[in-house]
Design a protein around this nucleic acid. Sequence first.
DNA 1: GTGCTCAATTATGTATACAATTAAAACACT
DNA 2: AGTGTTTTAATTGTATACATAATTGAGCAC
Lengths: 241, 241
Amino acid sequence: MSITHKKTEFPQSTRADVLQNPVFVGIEQAILEQRIPPGMRLAENDLGDVYGVSRTIVRAGLQALSQAHLVTLRPNRGASVANPSPREAREVFEARELLEPRSAREAALNAKPKDIADLRLHALAEHEAMQENASGRALRLSGLFHVKIAEIANQKTIAEFIESLVSRSSLIIALYWTKSSTRCDEGCHNALIDAIERHDADEAEDLMRSHLVDIHSALSFGVADKEHKTLKDMLGIDLSN
Amino acid sequence: MSITHKKTEFPQSTRADVLQNPVFVGIEQAILEQRIPPGMRLAENDLGDVYGVSRTIVRAGLQALSQAHLVTLRPNRGASVANPSPREAREVFEARELLEPRSAREAALNAKPKDIADLRLHALAEHEAMQENASGRALRLSGLFHVKIAEIANQKTIAEFIESLVSRSSLIIALYWTKSSTRCDEGCHNALIDAIERHDADEAEDLMRSHLVDIHSALSFGVADKEHKTLKDMLGIDLSN
DNA sequence: GTGCTCAATTATGTATACAATTAAAACACT
DNA sequence: AGTGTTTTAATTGTATACATAATTGAGCAC
């Protein structure tokens, strides 16, 4: 009944707990690599079978994914991979365009040699994934690059926001990506590393901003959500009969 | 085994599910009103008794609170009210100083008469709570004011971030607040509403920025965390013997 | 009296059983 | 055949039981 009043000594590592949940980790990675599409149903029993855990663990994972906006949870109806609306997509990129240029600036000011080396290594891994035509892995690594910069900026709070936005971007790209101007990333990321290495804050900020605008403008919200596509197609077929 | 592939029609209301959890709602409000202090232990059985639910529900609520940085979850050690470090406190306010001025600007551009009326009503409620010396309620309402502005700005994604930061601020204030310059809020909030009503974006942005800097600079990280205070006090008593 | 060890207790981690709800199938009826 | 209704199956919501780990406190040695 009474809530005991004892104070603990040291704090956190925010999502350390949820990172041990195989459902959270597995589904997150699958979404980031676009191995499961937006809107896909995620039944608790199936997930339990796949990851060899009980529904208790599945539910914990799904709840965490839901708070990360990667999964939609509807009462009594279960979970499905999130299906961000055009509006949400726009908002996510607006938020990134607000946060990440500042983050790149701070990274340029803070970066140590070790950070640069780490980024270069990462860019190499991105390059390899693209060569292998492993588009899923490439996409995930590309997102991770942005997170790494946010971490170098040494502001964990904002870095977490950026991490969340980057994750959601994978779903947005899955839904609204059009052009095959994919190769932008390669050059952009390298140029960004160069600017950061030079501690050229202004340049890093500008490069990040334009990089994000590039991605954003390669999205197309013109057509209705892809989720309605099938219905529309079917209607079209029906009418043509 | 196989995950069925069916698409659902409409999406989200992100934390609609967790808002139905009495533990989440109850503890969140208690923290925002500073009725439970940082570091306080939150045993699952106790919470279950208080809210009349099983540990299943308690755990779901605690997990959500943990992702909101209001509760710290340590494996096999249970939950306690979060105890933000000075660094985390600084980061939270830095993030607010980055996001909220922009938010106030957008609010000034977007605000409709109904929004203004709502804000004025809210300011009145804040005033009343202060008169009644209901400092907990006053603090929660004061935070809610900032959230409302973020919502008027019509950017849900960023508004959610701000909401999270505002919540965490309650814990930070509980730990690091010094002066009784509390009355700042009253004037600041009214001036802000005026600027927004005039659609004076620059003024709204400036007012919000300086308002946040005021709060931030009224925090003192000089002394060790208050969690050590009791220990220090006890040591002091011991020494005086 | 102080510090250590180990049992007893308490609390958390996970699975499972059952209830409630939703989705699907079978059936009756027009 | 097509539509509306009832029955059945499948899925989620919640509580509880059991396993496991942490904490407390008693007893003992020093």
